[in-house]
Computed example of a mutant assay.
Amino acid sequence: MQTILYARVSTTDQTIAHQRIQAEAAGFEVDEVVADEGVSGLTTSLNDRPQGRRLFDMLRRGDTLVVRWVDRLGRNYADVCDTIRELMRRGVIVRTVVNGLTFDGATKDPMQQAVRDALIGFMAATAQAQAEASKEAQRAGIDHAKGREDAYRGRKPSFTRAQFNAVREALSMGEGVSDIATVTGLTRQTIYRIRDNPIDSEAAIARWS
């Protein structure tokens, strides 16, 4: 039995190495890392990714698949649900670094199955909702400034996209605002603003990009 970390990175602000560091810091002993780079989780299913197909070929009954969160598997509700259920049917245990979730097909109790399946659905829906909100924010920012050099873009954000992504990732890991401010060099007020209004914050970045 082996533990495989699957990492997916879709932008230059994310790294495979960081996802491995997070997994190992959470206590996972990773035997191998399989990763897809520059792939959208919203439009490309795991089976359609080069390394995603390899992952399915590698996994055997009793193996553990580790992902940072379910959005690494995909950001489409139906696709994520189908992927996790297929892995469980194969006897693979799926575990996440964020929130420490475990999806295991071993249970035969119908109530436990119902709770597990409801959680899968909720996580998959959340992943798609976050992806669509982010995409909409970027589109709004681009549409606002497109073809209008004199367009009012509002106040220039005090953070870069890399800092925005770093803050969002740290918040999802449960890190404190003060610690995030120290690491990113941003003020606590900026961290709170990103936390409380992530869509508006990302739209501001898009308007000024």
Rank of each mutant, 00 (worst) to 15 (best):
L73H: 03
G62L: 11
Q14T: 06
A7D: 01
E37K: 14
T64N: 05
T107F: 06
V115P: 04
W208L: 05
F159G: 00
L42R: 12
V70N: 01
T102Y: 07
R116L: 15
G174T: 11
D104V: 05
R155Y: 04
A145I: 13
P198S: 03
R168Q: 13
R75S: 01
E32C: 08
R72C: 08
T12F: 09
V92F: 01
T96D: 09
M88G: 08
A26K: 15
L101V: 07
I191K: 02
I21T: 14
A17V: 14
E136W: 05
K146W: 11
A140I: 07
G74Q: 03
I16H: 04
Q51W: 01
A137C: 10
D48A: 15
M173T: 10
L59W: 01
A35T: 03
T102G: 08
A203I: 00
F159H: 01
M58A: 12
D48F: 09
D82F: 04
R90T: 03
S172W: 02
E202K: 09
D63S: 13
K146D: 10
T184I: 10
A204T: 03
G52Q: 01
K135A: 14
I194H: 01
T184P: 08
M58C: 11
S40M: 06
S45K: 11
G121L: 10
V67T: 07
A23M: 07
W69V: 04
V92I: 15
A129P: 04
I142F: 13
R60S: 14
L171I: 14
R188V: 11
G147F: 05
T12Q: 14
D117V: 08
G91T: 08
R68Q: 13
R207K: 14
A23D: 00
R85P: 02
T83R: 02
Q128E: 15
D109P: 05
S158I: 07
R116Y: 02
H144Q: 09
S10V: 06
I142C: 06
